[in-house]
């Protein structure tokens, strides 16, 4: 696959200074409404046919950002473009049209399909909603999709709930395929599954991508899998993208201290034994605790956990700066650490 030619192709999904905020519960009806910024000032591009990974800890806003690109979360500022066209949540009719080429694969396959449905109905639902094809065509397309994910068409009349988690996730993938989606959000697609089937599902997703040129947004907290799966990635912390760009470049030369922290926390089977016995950092409990709640008070959100933090970080205004071509980071002190 010509990597460079890929890059030049246009973006399928693009966000410009996207922010999404949610209202907090008011303490009294008279107090001012306060908001929490789930996503703030995010500008990313996902190119056609690439696997784009979104990495971060739970609560960092990954799912909200992904939902915003699917038109499920209304931006409080900024814009989302799909195929060059603005995604307008209020224009229900147009959104419905645009969503026809999107799907999402959820973390828990058991909850992402109606337990009362047969496999056939779960897979064919997108086609039945559109009512464009005859029953015969729907059935043949359904059978084709279910076979392309490694199940047999004999399974079509069984209930979704009769299958194991891994098989259910295959069914969910078949459902995404049958709808002809070109953009699929995979929200931690294997973290609810047995370890020995992780590889099967990830390989299946990669095979399908190779065959059909689908674009993925792959949400994960496992950096090791991301390295094997993704072409490009964004590292997210407290609603902001702190490092962004070509996956290989980021892994080869991780700039942001948070990215390095994530890479360091991947456990391995070689030499891990000594690494873990190292004494914990002095104030890590505090670092971890402040994590998700303190934000928007100016300065870098990561500064309290940062090993290279300095006084300037209290007031700094962060923005993504170029490190090399297609590799950006928010931390201005990363280079001369």
């Amino acid at each position: 696959m010509g990597e460079m030619s890929n890059r030049k192709s246009e973006a399928l999904v693009k966000t410009e200074h996207l922010s999404v905020r949610f209202p907090l519960k008011r303490e009294s009806p008279f107090s001012k409404r306060r908001y929490v910024n789930a996503v703030s000032d995010v500008s990313i591009e996902i190119f056609k046919g690439e696997a784009f990974a979104l990495v971060g800890e739970s609560g960092c806003g990954k799912t909200t950002l992904a939902d915003a690109t699917l038109g499920f979360a209304a931006p409080s500022a900024g814009e989302v473009f799909f195929n060059g066209e603005k995604l307008d949540i209020r224009n229900k009719k147009r959104l419905k049209q645009q969503r026809r080429s999107m799907q999402k694969i959820f973390q828990d396959p058991a909850s992402s399909m109606n337990p009362r449905f047969t496999v056939a109905r779960a897979v064919a639902e997108p086609l039945m909603i559109r009512r464009e094809l005859g029953e015969k065509r729907i059935l043949s397309k359904t059978a084709e999709a279910i076979e392309s994910v490694g199940l047999s068409s004999g399974d079509l009349d069984r209930f979704v709930s009769e299958f194991s988690g891994g098989q259910q996730q295959r069914i969910a993938i078949a459902r995404a395929l049958v709808s002809g989606a070109e953009y699929i959000v995979c929200d931690e697609p294997v973290s609810a599954l047995d370890v020995s089937v992780h590889a099967q599902i990830l390989n299946l997703l990669m095979d399908i991508q190779k065959e059909r040129g689908i674009t993925y947004m792959f949400i994960s907290h496992n950096l090791a899998s991301v390295r094997k799966f993704a072409d490009r990635l964004a590292i997210m912390y407290l609603g902001r993208i702190v490092e962004y760009g070509d996956a290989e470049k980021v892994f080869a030369n991780p700039m942001h201290p948070y990215t390095r922290m994530l890479i360091d926390s991947v456990l391995s089977l070689d030499g891990g034994k000594t690494a873990i016995n190292a004494p914990p950092e002095a104030n890590e409990a505090l670092q971890e605790e402040q994590g998700l709640y303190a934000s928007n008070d100016g300065g870098c959100g990561f500064r309290r956990r940062c090993p290279i933090g300095r006084s300037e970080c209290e007031s700094i205004k962060c923005s993504l700066e170029k490190v090399e071509s297609d590799h950006y980071t928010e931390c201005p002190y990363a280079a001369n650490r």
Binding site: V197, A199, L223, K228, L269
Partner: peptide, 22 residues
């Protein structure tokens, strides 16, 4: 199971898989 532990320095490519299920 050891193959299922992905190493951070692995390059992009297929995952080592065990076929079938429990």
């Amino acid at each position: 199971l050891m193959g299922a532990v992905v190493r951070i320095d692995d390059k992009k490519g297929r995952f080592t898989q065990i076929p079938g299920g429990l």
